[in-house]
């Protein structure tokens, strides 16, 4: 039971970080960067490749994280800014970000070949035995990084003027710009943070999933599902969606059957979309209203 929970939270944190990468970009620019999964792949494969060339693990990881961050910004300038400049309300970014995802994937497939590459096992070799469950140090690190990502994000968003201006841009970029917000700078920042978070997820899951040029598809889709569950409007909620997806997938695997993780996430998303179209953590949705109504009823009953 504890093992299911902890394993689920670890997997869920990875999905959550990818979902956050999606959400941060969407938060500021209202664009879904469909190359987010590929940014995760880039950090894994670059680390694998650099370590194979003889670089120390930490240096490989550092360079890979910088690369995924920079690549996030490049995606903005190559695939998003030009199409939004042409028409601010167009959905052309759907095609352009998907297109750049294919280009990144094909490029890495040419450089690294199609087969998976070993990833430094690092902290994943060290088990930590708890009563009723075993985790590795890498998995504990994953949980900590996930918590820090949410905490850091919320702290910046709520407690700093930079974060509050970001919030203002998110809700009304036009008016925010008339009060001095440089919307482009924020968009660049959002794509950089998105790239960094996706890269971070890659580094954390690398020892488990290895480096493969086609990985972006699987993690991109899982992250997107987590985003749908948590709600696209708030990055912290996206992490919540990841955790829900992770725990319920592993639980479905354990208690329903090994193939349940195949269809279960989609059933989950369907349920969420029916009950809470804006995500489980969005305010004002029917799921919340349902709970609120029920709780007010019980209060009324007592009175």
């Amino acid at each position: 039971m504890l093992q299911v929970l902890l394993s689920g939270l670890t997997v869920g944190t990875i999905y959550g970080l990818v979902a956050m990468a999606f959400a941060v970009v969407f938060y500021v620019t209202k664009v879904v960067n469909f190359a987010t999964g590929q940014l995760l792949m880039v950090s894994i494969l670059l680390t694998a490749g650099l370590v194979r060339l003889g670089l120390p693990d930490w240096l490989g990881v550092g360079i890979a994280l910088i690369a995924s961050t920079v690549l996030g910004v490049i995606i903005y300038f190559v695939a998003v800014r030009p199409v939004l400049k042409f028409d601010r309300f167009s959905f052309a970014w759907l095609v352009s970000t998907l297109g750049i995802a294919i280009v990144i994937q094909a490029t890495f497939a040419i450089i690294f070949g199609p087969a998976s590459q070993p990833f430094p096992r690092g902290l994943h070799q060290i088990p930590v035995h708890l009563p009723g469950a075993t985790l590795t140090v890498q998995e504990i690190l994953t949980l900590v990084v996930g918590a820090l990502a949410v905490l850091g994000w919320e702290l910046v968003r709520r407690k700093t003027l930079v974060g509050k201006l970001g919030m203002a841009i998110s809700t009304d970029p036009e008016i925010a710009s008339t009060f001095g917000a440089n919307v482009t700078a924020y968009a660049v920042g959002a794509f950089a943070i998105g790239g960094f978070l996706a890269g971070l997820a890659g580094i954390l899951v690398g020892p488990i999933t290895y480096g493969n040029p086609y990985l972006g598809d699987t993690y991109g889709i899982s992250g997107f599902i987590a985003l749908m569950i948590g709600g696209i409007q708030r990055p912290a909620a996206a992490m919540g969606g990841g955790l829900i997806l992770g725990v319920l997938s592993i639980a479905a695997n354990s208690y329903i059957g090994a193939q349940a993780s195949d269809w279960f996430p989609f059933v989950l998303v369907l349920l969420v979309l029916l009950l809470a179209p804006n995500g489980v953590f969005a305010s004002g949705d029917s799921l919340r209203k349902l709970f609120r109504r029920r709780s007010s009823l019980t209060v009324g009953g007592r009175a």
Binding site: Q3, S7, S116, I208, Y214, L215, G216, D217, I250, S261
Partner: peptide, 11 residues
């Protein structure tokens, strides 16, 4: 297709 591994903890 993608080479992503699956979580085998429960199994």
């Amino acid at each position: 297709g993608s080479g992503a591994t699956v979580n085998l903890d429960a199994e």
